[in-house]
Amino acid sequence: MATSPIIPRPRKDALGARVRVGSGATTRRVLIGAVLLVTALVLVAPLVAIFAEALRHGWGAYASSFAAPDTQYAIWLTLITALVVVPINIGFGIAAAWCIAKFSFPGRNLLVALVELPFSISPIIAGVAYLFVYGAQGLLGPFLEAHDIKIMFAVPGIMLASLFVTAPFVARELIPLMIAQGSEEEEAAVTLGAGGWRILRTVTLPNVRFALLYGAALCNARVMGEFGAVSIVSGNIRGQTNTLPLQIELLYQDNNAVAAFAVATLLTAVALVTLIAKAIIERLDRVREAAH
């Protein structure tokens, strides 16, 4: 298109860059400064406070916080829960993303909404809902009692509630990416005679591996840190159904602040590792995009 005399040329600054709203030096400095200041106060200070409080009485007190048998049990229970829940929700996420991204069918949008539903529901509601299924007064309560199966106020209840709360995490990362990637590669693999499982393993999953990894990391962080739902279904039995977040609350109520913060540093470390993994994955994605 030839430059029309009616359409004015874009405004440019001394360096020839296009001038956009807010690009003035003062606006820029004030906005960046204000945002950095507020961020330091609301996002960085809490992180620093956790470590400062945990180390208030030195490394010795910090380290001995982990010697308590209840705390060690809580660490173990949290790890076991994550080991069960994360793989199940990876499997669900892949299945959900496969049917939603590769096919169109009536009710597809409804299914997407359903997959994301736990994300919008308060964990407290999730816990209460599970109690009304598996609790003594619940839907399956009489049946479970007759067969002497204990789900509520026991480890299976913790795992079920965690499955609910973290169900969308992997699916949410995979679905938009798999929709964007389309199905051409899979269709080509079919014409070459590959079966479904082989296509999944050798074509689809390698294409989405970063998103899958990040979804799993987020799912893991959330499982380990889930508090509301688990505090309802666990019954808070010391040394039996306390996961790490519940142990933090218990220690805090016992006025054992150093131990509460020490346990909190473990979960904070999990959160920080998750965020670092995200940053690395995003950088790898950018490198890959640039290479294409």
């Binding site: 956790i50 840190g225 909190a264």
Partner: peptide, 16 residues
């Protein structure tokens, strides 16, 4: 840092 509140357990946030 923006994602810290999503990754950090709510109990830890409350404690901090």
């Amino acid at each position: 840092l923006v994602d810290v509140p999503f990754a950090l357990p709510t109990a830890v946030a409350g404690l901090a």
